[in-house]
Amino acid sequence: MTEYKLVVVGAGGVGKSALTIQLIQNHFVDEYDPTIEDSYRKQVVIDGETCLLDILDTAGQEEYSAMRDQYMRTGEGFLCVFAINNTKSFEDIHHYREQIKRVKDSEDVPMVLVGNKCDLPSRTVDTKQAQDLARSYGIPFIETSAKTRQGVDDAFYTLVREIRKHKEKMSKDGKKKKKKSKTKCVIM
Rank of each mutant, 00 (worst) to 15 (best):
T2N: 11
T2C: 09
T2S: 12
T2F: 11
E3W: 05
E3G: 12
Y4L: 12
Y4P: 15
Y4W: 05
K5M: 04
K5Y: 02
L6I: 12
L6R: 01
L6K: 02
V7K: 05
V7S: 10
V7F: 02
V7W: 09
V8P: 04
V8W: 00
V8D: 04
V9S: 12
V9L: 08
G10K: 04
G10C: 04
A11E: 14
A11Q: 10
A11D: 09
A11K: 08
G12W: 15
G12N: 11
G12C: 09
G13R: 09
G13E: 14
G15M: 15
G15W: 05
K16I: 00
K16R: 01
K16M: 02
S17P: 01
S17Y: 01
A18W: 01
A18I: 06
L19F: 11
L19G: 14
L19R: 03
L19P: 01
L19Q: 12
T20Q: 00
T20V: 09
Q22A: 09
Q22L: 02
Q22D: 15
L23C: 11
L23N: 12
L23Y: 08
L23Q: 14
L23M: 10
I24R: 05
Q25C: 15
Q25F: 15
Q25H: 05
N26E: 14
N26T: 08
H27I: 15
H27P: 01
H27C: 15
H27V: 15
F28E: 00
F28V: 01
V29H: 09
V29G: 01
D30A: 05
D30E: 13
D30F: 05
E31K: 01
E31M: 03
E31P: 01
Y32Q: 01
P34Q: 01
P34G: 00
P34A: 04
P34R: 00
T35A: 00
T35I: 01
T35R: 00
I36C: 00
E37K: 15
E37R: 15
E37C: 15
E37I: 09
D38S: 01
D38F: 00
S39C: 08
S39E: 04
R41D: 01
R41H: 04
R41M: 09
K42I: 09
K42T: 07
K42D: 03
Q43F: 10
Q43S: 11
Q43L: 04
Q43M: 13
V44K: 10
V44S: 10
V45L: 11
I46A: 12
D47S: 11
G48P: 09
T50E: 11
T50A: 11
C51M: 14
C51H: 14
L52I: 12
L52M: 13
L53T: 07
L53K: 03
L53N: 15
L53R: 02
D54Q: 14
D54N: 15
D54C: 11
D54L: 09
I55S: 02
L56R: 10
D57W: 00
D57C: 00
T58P: 00
T58G: 01
T58V: 02
T58C: 02
A59W: 00
G60V: 00
G60P: 00
Q61C: 10
Q61N: 15
E62Q: 06
E62F: 02
E63Q: 04
E63N: 02
E63K: 02
E63S: 02
Y64V: 01
S65H: 10
A66T: 08
A66R: 12
A66M: 14
M67S: 03
M67R: 15
R68E: 01
R68T: 02
R68M: 02
D69W: 08
D69C: 05
D69V: 03
Q70F: 08
Q70W: 03
Q70M: 13
Y71Q: 03
M72F: 03
R73Y: 11
R73V: 10
R73C: 09
R73W: 06
T74K: 15
T74L: 07
T74P: 04
T74R: 12
G75K: 02
G75H: 04
G75D: 02
E76Q: 08
E76M: 11
E76R: 06
E76H: 09
G77A: 14
F78E: 02
F78W: 06
L79K: 02
L79A: 09
C80S: 04
C80T: 04
C80M: 09
V81M: 07
V81A: 06
V81K: 01
F82Q: 05
F82M: 12
A83V: 03
A83Y: 01
A83E: 14
A83P: 06
I84F: 11
I84S: 13
N86H: 05
N86S: 08
K88V: 12
F90T: 11
F90G: 05
D92V: 07
I93V: 05
H95S: 07
Y96A: 03
Y96C: 12
Y96Q: 04
R97C: 15
R97P: 03
R97I: 15
E98W: 01
E98S: 04
E98K: 02
E98L: 02
E98F: 01
Q99S: 13
Q99Y: 04
Q99R: 08
I100F: 06
I100T: 04
K101Q: 04
V103P: 02
K104D: 08
K104W: 14
K104N: 15
D105C: 08
D105Y: 13
D105W: 03
D105A: 05
D105F: 14
D105T: 07
D105I: 04
S106W: 07
S106M: 13
E107S: 08
E107D: 09
D108C: 09
D108T: 05
V109C: 07
P110G: 02
P110R: 03
P110A: 04
M111W: 09
M111Y: 10
V112I: 05
V112P: 03
V112D: 02
V112W: 05
V112N: 01
L113M: 14
L113H: 01
L113C: 07
L113Q: 01
V114P: 05
V114K: 02
V114M: 06
G115A: 13
G115V: 12
N116T: 13
K117D: 13
K117I: 14
D119C: 08
D119A: 15
L120G: 13
L120N: 15
L120Y: 06
P121V: 10
P121C: 08
P121S: 08
P121I: 08
P121F: 08
S122N: 12
S122H: 08
S122F: 07
R123G: 12
R123F: 06
R123V: 10
T124V: 09
T124N: 08
V125Y: 09
V125D: 10
V125T: 10
V125M: 10
D126H: 06
D126V: 06
T127W: 05
T127I: 06
K128L: 05
K128Y: 06
K128I: 07
Q129V: 10
A130P: 10
A130C: 12
A130G: 06
Q131L: 06
Q131T: 10
Q131P: 11
D132W: 08
D132M: 06
L133N: 15
A134R: 15
R135P: 07
R135V: 12
S136N: 09
Y137C: 10
Y137M: 07
G138T: 06
G138M: 06
I139L: 15
I139A: 14
F141D: 03
I142Y: 14
I142L: 07
K147M: 06
R149C: 05
Q150L: 09
Q150S: 15
G151V: 07
G151Q: 04
G151R: 10
V152G: 10
V152N: 07
V152F: 08
D153F: 06
D153M: 08
D153P: 07
D153L: 07
D154F: 06
A155S: 12
A155G: 13
F156E: 01
F156K: 01
Y157W: 07
Y157C: 09
Y157Q: 07
T158E: 10
T158H: 13
T158S: 05
T158L: 06
L159Y: 03
L159C: 05
L159H: 02
L159D: 08
V160I: 06
V160E: 08
E162L: 08
E162N: 10
R164I: 05
K165E: 08
K165Q: 06
H166N: 08
H166R: 06
H166C: 11
K167T: 10
K167P: 05
K167W: 12
K167A: 06
K169L: 05
K169R: 06
M170T: 06
K172S: 11
D173S: 09
D173Y: 14
K175R: 12
K175C: 08
K176L: 15
K176G: 14
K176C: 10
K177A: 09
K177I: 07
K177P: 15
K177Y: 07
K177G: 11
K178I: 07
K182R: 03
K182S: 06
T183V: 02
C185G: 13
C185S: 13
C185V: 12
V186Q: 15
V186F: 15
V186C: 14
I187M: 04
M188V: 05
